[in-house]
Design a protein around this nucleic acid. Structure first.
Lengths: 203, 203, 203, 203
DNA sequence: AATGAATGAGTTTTCATTCAT
DNA sequence: AATGAATGAAAACTCATTCAT
């Protein structure tokens, strides 16, 4: 049933995230899936719509995930702040940046984002605006509850997120997403998180 | 003359950096240059070698530029530190990240960097390793001459460079490189640089 | 169905054996078959593999044919020698040298045999080594059963086969394989065969 | 001056005789000669006319050679027959079949002879009709002067020439014309010549 | 749900040739 | 005598897609 369709989506994501949409042919996809080219058209209208479905599914998944994280943040003041934030942070790393599926989608976006305005908007949203926005909210909550003091929670968000974004680009978007790569990313990211909060506390 | 060859390179860079290598056809290039498709093959062995030459020329240019910047840094201790550094920093922004040619090349690298190992290495070098290395050197020079105090100049480099990298991805790799985009980047980047140094001084 | 594939093979052999592999274009083939150029690639990987399949099929066919002839020879001593040999000989002429299919393949080999080592080996095998070997075996069987007397059955094979080879090149590889050409060949070949055996008997 | 033209002819013959006319490009020729493609057109009208000139020069050369041989034959009755014929024969082998230039031309003819009627006529003339004719004349001269006895000098010519033709195709048209190949040819050919004349004498 | 067969449009590339210099 | 630059035509091949089965 939907098994084949799912396989097509999986394989397509895999190949698209490595070589980009236009460098992958229906043939390539079918060779990997183990079906004939004509069979693709039973499941999808055309090549583009494979891509579209990939995109649409990602947006649903990512929206869900971010909603969850945001709900966690709203509970922050009542909870033992830093702990809960640590969890939230870990969830963002493990289930978004390092999750095999999301990671491939983010790579794909980063290859295709120069193609057209729509792509660019989606890319900007999921790699910049949303994470920064989220981080900003965190800091404003923490600030409002007196846990930290800051005038500019949006610059604070940049200072917090930018190194993570850099580490991600360096270690999570480079070649295969091996356990080794993840580990290097984790080390750098958590070191940064710790530094960041200890410096915040100093002031 | 070489005029045509240069035109092919210019147009190719333009198109490649917008759509990626495989989404641009020789036809597209020729239409823009105003020659017939077969003429391309007088100047280049094949499509790939246009890309290769683009890459090779960029590496020469970028190496030159970075050498200059590094010589500036070596002169730092003798000079009125921050001023010279400000210049160096501005040069890095204006002549590398925002220079029309370099900017296109960096976009191109960021589209193609997942294609193969070689691409990935070049991308990593010019967008992470080289800039971070350079920034690290700056901080170690400043630290040795007593201008700043730090134990970990490489993490300092990350804290300094990461937001710039983020602003670049956000404003300089997004759509056309308009004067407006550049201005937004400059505002954010210089705000960050100032914040950064004022915080450094505080300690 | 396989009809198209067979038609491509037939037409290709026809054209290749007239003009040589590289002087025949896929377009030429398709025009004759009545399909579009892209359709060829459903049945064959590329132009070369049409040639390869042609070659491979011929080797199977020719091996079969020669096996049959050799079995005939093994039965020679028990049978009324010359008669059976006459049949064998006729079969070699009619079903190999003059058979429309084999004839075209042998022409093709004779056009392409200088191209590379593999071609040369196949050509040498099917036009020299195999026939001479076969003829040598015939004479050694006839000699062992006392029907003829000879010390050097391999030179005898040359004396027997060389004129046939020459007549073949002269009359069967020249222009279209018309009934007229065949008749001239037959006359010359059988005259030679008769002369040859009558001289053999003289000694 | 004509140095370049000659070099083009030499290289062309070399390549044509290996791969056939249509499989060799002007580019291939120029690469070997060391000139640019456009320069060919100073010396030749087009590709075809290189081939034509090659052909025309060969016909002149070969005609000359054969004339010489025929003059030798006319002198036969007066001379010590067999000796002179031995020389004539050796000359035909060494200066025609095994001569580097003639050999290449004969190969070329054997690749191209199926292409069109004109080619076929030239091929037939220089590989069958002329040699057989010449040999027939020899035998008729020898016969008329009582040195040998034969009713059918043309079949005698076939019996004499066919094995040489076969050895030539086998050893002189196969791969490069090495000293080794020549030696194998000589051994087989001279063995045949001796056999032939001793058998002739027997009768 | 899948595939065999076909195709139009397009891809990259090659080729012989031209012509001004 | 040679070449740099260009080109029209054609080559081989790829690709996304269609459609009957």
């Amino acid at each position: 049933m939907n098994e084949t369709k799912q396989k097509i989506l999986d394989v397509s994501l895999d190949l698209f995230s490595q070589k980009g949409f236009s460098a992958v042919s229906i043939r390539d996809i079918c060779k990997s899936v183990g079906i004939k080219e004509s069979s693709v058209y039973y499941h999808f209208k055309n090549k583009q719509s494979i891509f579209n479905e990939l995109l649409q599914r990602f947006e649903t998944t990512a929206t869900d995930l971010m909603c969850q994280l945001e709900q966690g943040v709203n509970a922050l003041p009542d909870a033992s702040g830093e702990n809960l934030y640590g969890k939230t942070c870990g969830c963002f790393f493990e289930n978004y940046l390092m999750d095999e599926y999301c990671n491939k989608m983010l790579r794909l976006l980063s290859i295709e984002h120069l193609h057209n305005d729509e792509m660019r908007k989606i890319y900007d949203y999921w790699l910049f605006d949303k994470p920064l926005n989220f981080q900003g909210k965190v800091f404003s909550v923490l600030s409002m509850s007196g846990m930290i003091q800051t005038e500019d929670s949006s610059y604070l968000a940049v200072k917090f997120y930018a190194p993570i974004f850099l580490f991600m680009q360096r270690w999570l978007f480079s070649g295969a997403l091996t356990e080794e790569c993840k580990q290097v990313f984790r080390e750098n990211a958590y070191k940064h998180v710790n530094h960041f909060f200890s410096e915040l506390g100093d002031k």
